[in-house]
């Protein structure tokens, strides 16, 4: 490795560290300022809580053995709806790809369902499936699966025509085309949709927990706001940030693993 190249890599690393440094500094400044301003009563901790109060609230949730129940409930519901939504997305997109006629027929319905704010369906789901975890999961599935169907289907139909021609020179079977070209070439598209799906599922679950639940992070936030316990609300938001980040990195890890196998 030449001296210039070493210096280039060093500069690149330095730049990266600089970015991390400032990201951490901003976080520390915000937290300290928030705490100091609430301690000095410049900000009302009753309305906006404080970092210390949030830590205490999370600690008390932990001590009462409730912390992991709430996190676990939200995680469980999110992962279930994530898996079901992905399956629905892939299966329905496959059916639509296989039958262009059916795709044309259902196109306006998909557009309507996609533009409809799914939260409007919340009360209907509650009536149909009752005040239960099932309703929460169905709500999340509704929110995430429609987008997935559209995105994955678009990936399926936007394949390079030359590649389709190539597979057809070996076989005219549509199943062969799907198996050897459509599905494998869409793995990156499906993986990038995992990210959308995981965040949409989490949004759906929190919305569902707002409407009907006795546990979960959405319940903590909703309950906290109803009893005007802003420490609980903010703790819920912080927990949500942690859960969302963890889920995002889980999908990111899957993506990187896939990239590693194809590089």
């Amino acid at each position: 490795m030449s001296k210039e190249h070493k210096e280039y890599l060093k500069a690149l690393k330095k730049h990266k560290i600089k970015i991390y440094f400032w990201q951490i500094i901003i976080f520390i400044i915000v937290i300290i300022s928030w705490q100091v301003l609430t301690d000095l009563k410049v900000l009302d901790s009753f309305i906006i809580s404080s970092p210390k109060n949030i830590i205490n609230t999370i600690a008390s949730l932990y001590n009462s053995n409730n912390l992991f129940i709430h996190i676990g409930t939200t995680l469980y519901e999110t992962l279930i709806s994530f898996i079901i939504s992905m399956l629905i997305g892939i299966v329905v997109a496959t059916i639509l790809w296989y039958s262009p006629f059916l795709a044309k027929v259902v196109e306006p319905y998909l557009t309507i369902l996609n533009s409809l704010p799914k939260v409007a369906l919340g009360p209907i789901i509650l009536i149909w499936f009752g005040a239960s975890t099932t309703s929460i999961i169905i709500m999340a599935i509704l929110i995430s699966s429609i987008v997935l169907i559209i995105n994955i289907y678009n990936g399926f139909i936007n394949i390079d025509n030359n590649k389709i021609k190539l597979v057809k020179t070996f076989s005219n079977s549509k199943i062969t085309l799907y198996r050897f070209l459509i599905l494998p070439s869409n793995i990156p598209n499906i993986i990038s949709n995992l990210k959308i799906c995981i965040s949409m599922s989490l949004i759906g679950i929190i919305m569902g927990e707002f409407l009907v639940s006795k546990k979960g992070i959405g319940y903590l936030i909703m309950y906290g706001s109803q009893v005007f316990n802003l420490d609980l609300v903010m703790s819920g938001v912080v927990l949500l940030c942690i859960v969302a980040t963890a889920l995002y990195y889980l999908v990111y890890y899957i993506e990187k693993r896939y990239e590693k196998t194809t590089h």
Binding site: D160, N162, K163, K165, L166, T169, L181, P184, S185, I187, T262
Partner: peptide, 15 residues
């Protein structure tokens, strides 16, 4: 039997 070679090499990036 016929073999067909296209304008584009149409190689599969994932293979």
């Amino acid at each position: 039997t016929i073999g067909y070679m296209l304008q584009d090499d149409a190689l599969f990036d994932w293979l």
